[in-house]
Amino acid sequence: MNNAHPKGQISETISVRSATRLGTIALAAGAILFAMPLDAGPSQLGELFVWWEQVGTPQATVSLLRASALLLASWLFFVSLIGAAGAACRSATTARLAWRLTPRSIRRLIAVSVVLSVATPGLANAAESTELPAPILVDLGPAEASASEDADPPELIDLGPVVASPRPWHLDAIQPTSPLPEAAIATFLQSPSAESETWQVAPGDHLWSIAEEILAEGGASPSESDVEHYWRRLTDANREAIGLNPDLIHPGILLTLPTTT
């Protein structure tokens, strides 16, 4: 009987303990409420399946888990808050009601839900990362609008009729300024390039006119297909000297002339 306590002291002990526990639960549930942002879901129940297909099963499962956990945490928060207030006011009935409304099984369920909803995003992301990336179609606006970023689209300008320019420079017109060593002369003569002529590009020159003039040296006026054929050979033989654009050659470039046969 020495351990016996007056009835009022027992009630007070229960009230303080209940207030502490319920307050702790209310704080934890409130913290969960604020810490867990709710994922964007379907605005209407009828859109649930469309939303599910859009976000994919893993993400949709995580979102639903989070929503469930938040719902339970909200309910626990308000019930615990009321119970804690009742316990603080020494209202044993309110505190017992709160405990009955939040039995241990419910609290465990909430704990499991919270743990799962926190842990599953990582699992969902891992599941998503194993899928092949789907091509995304992105609208970048009309092509004409984006092209306008180049403020000055180039114009094609007529420069007038083609005027044949005289051949300004030939290999056979060069006279060595000093005699070459015999070994060098032998090597030079054996080289295939020794048999091919060269052409130094002058201002106004272009590959087509050069091709025309080279072919015309034979006497007859070359046909357009002959000129085109020679123009291609001329271009191929001078890839490095010409660069990427055979329509733009610069004065001073030395072109190797393919044979006309």
Binding site: P154, L156, I157, L159, G160, P161, H206, S209, D247, L248
Partner: peptide, 20 residues
Amino acid sequence: MVHDGRRFALGTTDDITVLG
């Protein structure tokens, strides 16, 4: 560039042009 006996200018030296 040349077409049908006439000469034409297009772009700058850094541009790449083709005919087709």
